[in-house]
Design a protein around this nucleic acid. Structure first.
Length: 475
DNA sequence: GATGCCGGGCA
DNA sequence: TGCCCGGCATC
């Protein structure tokens, strides 16, 4: 009879009831003293064989905790605290070669969920009948979920099931008050509206709220002190640390190797683990609590998630990815959500503004030598096709610098302009001239004539010499 | 009147 | 096509 205890890790803002999928070698040591049963065939099984640690959890016992009383003998325990609430011990058995021992344990141990419910019902004034209805609904939904998961997984124990089915996700935000009860159904990736929604927790959820404390007790000696503190802190000092009002949503992620399934309820994730990974088909009554170790609680900022997801297509498979990825994605989506937009919107070259582009425009004007034009990066250029073989570029701009061969060989300086008006440069000489009736108004800027004077006519630009529109000092 | 520039003619 | 100029509009 072997039992394995998986590591309970403390993460920032999250607890991990880790299965420590065989990959985490460093956890082996920790696992030694934990008793989390691992199904046969699981990589961990052999590694932790023989290692067991008594697990005794007390629930709602006014801060009292059972000290693990039995060393190596394992087995389940039940005790009653002063409130009459049963204490549940996680059964210590292994799944591999599980036989009489396991059956004993199973028969002796009450299902974890059941215990939680009891705890909740005894500590919280929750209408029982209503709760039962909730449970019934939950069970149905969960059953459907499990079936779905099973149907998507060819092998019951082959982990990768990437379907997200959420159950009743509103409870976390709601609080414990019975008035906030709700039979709301599936959790969905929508913006959090739970705060304003008077409905809320369903029984299992409330029960789950006690999980941390249980798990704290269950964790091995190395973590005990910390857990103790955490527990008391959670229980007394910070009574509502997990009632995130606005943006935080607690999800439960399956830690089974290669499985990133995320559900919104502990019950759901437990069922998932139980049915999919542990291969049990029975109801929660069959739970011995071991599935507790195979999932972790994660906190999601639903605001961000909602924001990120809102930019995704509902049919997008990425929505079905588990939250860790989601969190990465969230960072991405917060960027890429807008980024994707800009990407897609900027994919039309001719219609886009070109704030950061530097265009070289050859002004093949009849009166001016070819000159590259650099459009300032702060300007917004617009390409305007004007014919099949020509187009013009216009932009609103700060100073535009023309660099190129000056019209006059005697002047080769770079000319600078400060134009605040929209400018259009004919790119090809085939641009049709404005009709005579639409004679353009006289330019206001100084032209070559005025700059150089009649006596220096040779310094004029070609256009000016030919009595054409000045090309050097363009309006 | 000075200036800017369109339209047209010429080589 | 490049060059030049008459002529007109604008300042």
């Amino acid at each position: 009879m072997h039992a394995r205890r998986l590591v309970k890790r403390s993460l920032i803002g999250s607890r991990v009831y880790a299965p420590g999928s065989g990959a985490a070698a460093g956890e082996a040591g920790e696992r030694e003293n934990r008793d989390a049963p691992v199904p046969s065939g699981h990589p961990e099984e052999e590694a932790v064989k023989g290692a067991r640690k008594p697990s005794l959890k007390s629930l709602c016992n006014g801060g009292q905790r059972d000290v693990p009383a039995q060393g190596q003998n394992g087995g389940t325990q039940k005790s009653e605290n002063t409130n009459g609430v049963e204490e549940l011990r996680a059964p210590e058995h292994r799944r591999a070669g599980r036989t009489l021992d396991m059956e004993k344990d199973n028969t002796r141990s009450v299902s974890l969920l059941e215990q939680k419910r009891k705890v909740v019902s005894s500590s919280i004034d929750v209408p029982h009948a209503r709760k039962s209805d909730e449970e019934v609904d939950m069970d149905k939904v969960t059953a459907a979920m499990v079936l779905t998961s099973l149907s998507t997984s060819p092998l019951v124990r082959s982990p990768p099931v990437k379907v997200i089915e959420g159950l009743n996700g509103s409870w976390k935000d709601g609080g414990f008050t019975p008035s906030s009860y709700s039979s709301s159904g599936f959790w969905s990736w929508s913006a959090p509206s739970d705060q304003s929604n008077p409905s809320t927790p369903s029984p299992p959820l409330s029960a789950d709220s006690f999980r941390p404390f249980r798990m704290s007790s269950l964790s091995g000696p190395p973590d005990d002190t910390l857990d103790e503190q955490d527990t008391s802190s959670l229980l007394f000092d910070e009574p509502i640390p997990r009632k995130r009002k606005n943006s935080m949503k607690v999800m439960f992620k399956c830690l089974w190797k290669n499985c990133g399934k995320v559900l919104s309820t502990a019950a759901g994730i437990q069922r998932h683990i139980r049915t999919v990974h542990l291969g049990r088909n029975c109801d929660s009554e069959c739970s011995d609590g071991e599935e507790d170790f195979y999932y972790t609680e994660i906190k999601l900022n639903t605001d961000s998630v909602a924001d990120g997801l809102s930019s995704l297509s509902p049919a997008s498979p990425s929505v079905l990815s588990p939250p860790p990825a989601t969190e990465h994605r969230r960072a991405e989506t917060s960027c890429s959500a807008s980024g994707a937009k800009t990407e897609s919107s900027s994919s039309t070259p001719l219609s886009r503004s070109a704030p950061s582009a530097l265009y070289l425009v050859h002004t093949d004007h009849a009166y001016q030598a070819t000159a590259p034009v650099s459009i300032p990066s702060t300007s917004s250029a617009r390409f305007t096709p004007s014919s099949s073989n020509s187009f013009s570029i216009s932009w609103q701009s700060p100073p535009v610098t023309f660099t190129g061969t000056p019209a006059s060989p005697t002047h080769n300086q770079t000319q600078g302009f400060s134009e605040q008006r929209s400018q259009t440069i004919p790119v090809l000489s085939s641009l049709p001239r404005a009709s005579g009736s639409l004679r353009k108004s006289r330019g206001e800027g100084k032209k070559c004539r005025k700059v150089y004077g009649m006596e220096n006519r040779d310094m004029w630009c070609t256009a000016c010499r030919w009595k054409k529109a000045c090309q050097r000092f363009v309006d």
